[in-house]
Design a protein around this nucleic acid. Structure first.
Length: 181
DNA sequence: AGATTGATCCAT
DNA sequence: TGGATCAATCTG
């Protein structure tokens, strides 16, 4: 089976295309204790500064700077003082957009929720700005699976009610798993 | 439903 | 420099 580390060209595309393509890919984390891999089940797209749900809509600050950076970088932030969220930066430099990894499935079962994913994979802000294309510490692989678009459900994004009409965009994408969950 | 928890941002 | 805010999760 082919196992390809996703290259910059994967991330340097339209954010909704990247988001759809990420479903069924594998998040890989290398730790001193060994490595862990999870199939990506759910993501959310944040498409640019005009998207009022996207953190970059608040402007270019220290926190959002990475969103304006190279595709294939991570954007990791702390939320509610307790949990971390992992995003992958997309599109071209100076177009601030990203995809949030919301759920994965691995040998331990479904890891459902962005804070749980980061806890399970030991991801915190020390991995902010990490280059996902290097194949070390943290990256995403294509394992050659083809996920039919009919297997991906589209829903409103979670926790962005403040974003007005942008809150209703169907940009949360979730794989319809065998268990139906 | 309410509590938790702390980095960030801007004005009250 | 204080306080509101927050791409969440756990417990009741």
């Amino acid at each position: 089976m082919t196992r390809q580390v996703l290259p910059v060209s994967f991330y340097a595309r339209d954010t909704l295309v990247v988001a759809h393509s990420l479903v069924g890919k594998y998040l890989i984390r290398e730790l001193p204790t060994g490595s862990r891999a999870g199939r990506i089940i759910e993501v959310e797209a944040y498409v640019g500064a005009h998207d009022l749900a996207c953190h970059a809509s608040k402007g270019r600050t220290k926190r959002t700077e990475v969103l304006f950076g190279r595709p294939g970088l991570t954007y990791v932030f702390l939320i509610y003082g307790m949990y971390h969220c992992l995003n992958v930066v997309t599109e071209r430099v100076d177009h601030p957009a990203a995809v949030l990894i919301r759920a994965v499935e691995d040998e331990s079962g479904l890891v459902d929720g962005p804070g749980r994913v980061c806890r399970a994979y030991a991801i915190d802000t020390s991995l902010n700005y990490h280059d996902l294309t290097t194949g070390r510490l943290l990256w995403i692989e294509d394992h050659g699976e083809r996920v039919p678009k009919s297997q991906i459900g589209a829903f409103a994004r979670i926790g962005v009610d403040y974003a007005g009409e942008w809150a209703t965009k169907p940009w949360r994408l979730r794989l319809k798993t065998a268990t139906g969950k």
